[in-house]
Write a protein that binds this DNA or RNA. Sequence first.
DNA 1: TTTTAATTTATAATGATTCTAAATAAGTGT
DNA 2: ACACTTATTTAGAATCATTATAAATTAAAA
Lengths: 134, 134
Amino acid sequence: MNNNDSFIQKLRSSGLKATAQRIEICKVLFNRDKTFHFTIYDLSKFLNKKISLATIYNTVNAFKKKGYLKEISINSDKSYYDTNVSNHHHFFNESTNELIDLHNKDVEKVKIKKNIPGKKIKSIEVLVKIENSN
Amino acid sequence: MNNNDSFIQKLRSSGLKATAQRIEICKVLFNRDKTFHFTIYDLSKFLNKKISLATIYNTVNAFKKKGYLKEISINSDKSYYDTNVSNHHHFFNESTNELIDLHNKDVEKVKIKKNIPGKKIKSIEVLVKIENSN
DNA sequence: TTTTAATTTATAATGATTCTAAATAAGTGT
DNA sequence: ACACTTATTTAGAATCATTATAAATTAAAA
């Protein structure tokens, strides 16, 4: 089974049609050793005008809904996404607007001593903002 | 010293001219018992069309730069601000898009076991996403 | 009071994202 | 292989938050 086939399976198994565009996007996003942090603009540059911007948005939103991508919470004018959908955290380099993974093992378990009645915790996200230390 | 005077002092002491608009905005933001979480849209509703939207943006940005307001990191189409500029964290109710303070004393100290060479940590923010538990 | 620079403002511009609706293509059944 | 149904793609328009512009106003200093 080659790479494309695995993407086709992945797409079909979640009820998405395996279109050429989605497979192309899968290749950019998931054929990687390390996790990929990106904006729509970043992704569109990788795709090099081969795919319409509307489709890129549609696909990223679809993948997010299916749990293949995760949106990262930072205050920015644009959305950042992460191919690492497991539980983990981030450094955000405010000098370069760059994200760096911060694995769970590198953060001592975050313990919340307050609970909100009638609500349950969905996720706990730690964002460590960093800057040049000179 | 009445309230306005204290705002005038506050503004002047940080090199901002004490304009009627800024004093009006100070009253909305800082005459409160509890901290105030808001968007520009929220604030403009409180000000009830008395002040131009451009001025509201300018002022919020100026106050943020001076450290009177803090921007909160959540992935949203708009920016959220907080009148509590001390070190603390947040719950974000995903059902209602509402923010709730999570004081430092209610979070066990977040310990980061990884450091990025040449960078220093500027802030550590914890965002606890919650939803209805039924 | 005069002066100067900061501020306010309406409006235009920008940029990210979503919407629209027509054309295309995937997957299903024959 | 073929037709059918429905999802998807797409260009372009629309929307929404935010910033820029540039002329009029005003605060604060001289």
